[in-house]
Amino acid sequence: MSLSIFFQNLINAISLGFLFALIAIGYTMVYGVLRLINFAHGDIFMMAAFFVFYTMTIFSLPWGIACLVAIVLTMLLGLSVERVAYRPLRNAPRISSLCSAIGVSFLLENFAVVVFGGRPKSFYCPEFFTKTFILGGVRVLGINFVTPLVSIVFLSLLSYLVYRTKNGLAMRAISKDFDTARLMGINIDRTISFTFMIGSGLAAVGAILWASRYPQIWPFMGVFPGWRAFTAAIIGGIGSIRGAMVGGFLVGFISIMLVAFLPELAGYKDAFIFIALILVLLFKPEGLFGEE
């Protein structure tokens, strides 16, 4: 294995890590405020890719505008999922909201199979994304420049939002103590809706980048990115934004480096990721950066 191939894989892993971080933050933020694992997050991610596809084919909008429309639509989807499936069960036993989350996940997948069709569709992306650049012997795809840049922009926006604005303060207060936050006059419902919108918006950005990287979209495309991002969120410590980023990088590295360096074990890739998930949950359930 030459050094240039190593760097090629490294750049791939970093870019993939950013993607997982973007998706993982959706899980982490929802868990922070609701103590609920949003099983439907991976499917909201999938819907975002289809929103781009259909706004482009039906309204023949240019790519950039289609992406913006899709991000807004996905935020609305996240909002309505919360309104319809999670809000009525907020005071019910935890098991009920878990069932509801699993149900929404399956509902979205099967809805996509029925409405969009089960066959993979090819996803349009700008030419720059698929171009190969050669920098000092290392071949780099355009998407590998775009993904880190876009992710850094959105992650900084997110940190500004969470740590510097009133809404962010409300979100952090709710994740510390739900009932006290309500007593302090924080509008719980509005803040939770806001959290879902932000999480879904980031999932939409992740989906666009993901679909430009692997340019085929189909109804179950969200399942594995979803679970890997979820694993990333758990490893980093669920509820922690910094943890989601670190976890995302770790999972990105495992996914790419395992295939690159131990190709005979590549088939077991998902098993390794799930074993990591189980081990972290068993021995360090608060993750690397989570709260005790």
Partner: peptide, 26 residues
Amino acid sequence: CLRLKGDYLAIVTFGFSEIIRVLFNN
């Protein structure tokens, strides 16, 4: 795994069944 509760147990058992599926595929 049964030390874990609620959502976490659900995830671990799901992870287990996926590991079985991956193993049986390989």
